[in-house]
């Protein structure tokens, strides 16, 4: 049983600002309350490819376990570890992120892919964000009989969180915009 959905969002900010905001999204203390499902974000590795201008980063994201409360009770764990891999290509101006859970994977698999590219209608002023999410409940897990309900709950939760994520991104972009105006003024 798999549920997949995709979302698209246009930020009316240049690609550079949006990707800078993306790095700050989880780590800015100001957003802790909005993104309260995020407990901790650690950078585990990073690699700069000097010849090509590509930056590879792996981060650990610890979140409150997805799904309804009874799911957390059944699996006996209320936090979930995810690994996020990011590639930023500064030359071609693209940023790709892929996140998936590495705990609770016997019960559920969540995979989220996000891409930030310059918007074709205004490559220097706008940024397009494309996001794909796949949620799979493992068929042999104890949760299988409730899987469909749980998946639906998870999807709702994820969509709610990603809406909050966009709200935070917009806020950081505005902040960065005013900061850059302040410097150049």
């Amino acid at each position: 049983m798999v549920r997949a959905y995709s979302q698209e969002h246009t930020y009316k900010h240049p690609w550079e600002r949006v990707t800078a905001a993306s790095w700050r999204k989880f780590s800015d203390p100001a957003n802790k309350r909005t993104l309260s499902h995020i407990i901790e974000v650690d950078t585990l590795s990073h690699k700069l490819e000097r010849s090509s201008g590509k930056l590879y980063t792996t981060r650990a994201i610890t979140v409150h376990a997805p799904g309804p409360w009874f799911l957390r009770k059944m699996i006996g764990q209320d936090i979930c570890h995810c690994v996020e891999s990011t590639v930023v290509d500064a030359k071609s101006r693209s940023m790709q992120l892929a996140t998936r859970n590495i705990s609770l994977e016997k019960f559920i698999e969540v995979e989220e892919k996000i891409r930030y590219d310059p918007h074709p209608d205004d490559p220097n002023g706008w940024t397009i964000c494309r996001q794909e999410t796949r949620i799979t409940i493992k068929p042999l897990s104890a949760l299988a009989t409730m899987a469909e309900k749980i998946e639906q709950k998870c999807v709702e939760k994820f969509q709610h969180n990603s809406a909050k994520g966009r709200e935070v991104m917009e806020r950081i972009c505005k902040y960065l915009e005013s900061e850059s105006r302040g410097i150049s003024a």
């Binding site: 792996t58 570890h81 891999s85």
Partner: peptide
């Protein structure tokens, strides 16, 4: 967490 700490070893980068 052993799943996480293996990423600390040099140059383990997941290819997207």
């Amino acid at each position: 967490n052993k799943h996480l700490s293996r990423f600390l070893e040099a140059d383990v980068v997941v290819d997207l």
